[in-house]
């Protein structure tokens, strides 16, 4: 897909995100908006996904012979659901059920509701990298040349389990794994540097044996290029420090931890949607 088309999809996804969290007055718009360009690029351009003859994506839990993505920071579920729906895993109309009773779109992603596209529950932080390591190892054991991606938050790096996974991946030569950290510098209680300073995450991962890259996460062209380049070394996993702005695309949300887990009210929603105009051919859910 052309970069401009990807940007159009990203705008539609951002509209979904603010509408979804507004509708239930809960959820996490900040990180969702910041990671939108990354996840759209991944699902619409970068990943090799299983499709039928008509080009429709096909979901099975085993993900054999295709790339696979895990969302470790599960609270940015509005983004994940919107991208999955718009990529064709389930009807876009179902986005209106987000966080409501009896919905497949739980507050945090789960396999319990059998929503196509979701392969692991996430929300309790720090677990996704380990799961991605396991899936990457399974691909190696199966002789499957496809790639595994995982997205984590920068605040999430404070969880000890992350560093157990960080140690495991290079040791087991998981070159088929790309881990991406959403480096927005914010977490619930404030700037990450003040809550618990992660300092130089790149140097840490390098010391653990990863190949480390930086990427401007709100620049679609760069995101596509960097993600494609990350699949080079067969024996060394890649860590991408993705510089993003929390709340990207909605001016009053940008750069502040205050919109980590707060929904816009009706008036704020109108303002947000005005800043995210739909392009021809795209529509809201």
């Amino acid at each position: 897909m052309e970069i401009q088309q990807l940007e159009h999809v990203a705008t539609a996804v951002r509209r979904d995100i603010v509408r979804m969290v507004n509708a239930v007055n809960s959820g996490h718009p900040g990180g969702s908006l910041g990671c939108t360009d990354f996840m759209v690029a991944l699902y619409f351009e970068v990943m090799n996904l299983k499709t039928d003859d008509g080009g429709q994506v096909v979901f099975d839990m085993d993900a054999r012979d295709e790339d696979v993505f895990f969302l470790s920071n599960g609270h940015i579920s509005p983004l994940f659901y919107s991208v999955l729906a718009r990529r064709g895993y389930f009807p876009i109309s179902e986005l209106s059920t987000f966080r409501k009773l009896d919905s497949r779109l739980q507050g945090h992603p789960t396999t319990a509701e059998h929503l196509p596209g979701v392969r692991i529950a996430s929300g309790s932080l720090g677990q996704g990298l380990s799961v991605a390591c396991g899936a990457a190892l399974a691909k190696k054991l199966n002789g499957d040349p496809n790639h595994v991606y995982v997205l984590m938050g920068d605040g999430e790096q404070q969880e000890g389990q992350v560093w157990e996974g960080a140690m495991f991946a290079p040791h087991h030569k998981l070159g088929n794994l790309t881990a991406v950290i959403d480096l927005n510098g914010q977490q619930i209680d404030g700037p990450t540097s003040l809550v618990m300073n992660n300092r130089d995450l790149g140097a840490k991962y390098e010391a653990f044996g990863w190949h480390v890259e930086h990427m401007e996460g709100n620049n679609m062209a760069e995101v596509v290029t960097k993600l494609k380049e990350s699949r080079q070394d067969p024996d060394v996993p890649t860590l991408i420090l993705m510089h993003t702005e929390m709340g990207y695309g909605v001016d009053y949300m940008m750069g502040s931890h205050k919109w980590h887990g707060v929904a816009p009210n009706a008036e704020q929603l109108v303002t947000a949607l005005n800043q995210l105009p739909l392009t021809a051919g795209m529509s809201d859910y």
Binding site: R64, V131, A138
Partner: peptide, 13 residues
């Protein structure tokens, strides 16, 4: 903790 997560990931495949 990582062992449990890796185990969960291995089932996918």
């Amino acid at each position: 903790a990582n062992m449990i997560g890796v185990s969960a990931g291995l089932t996918i495949g």
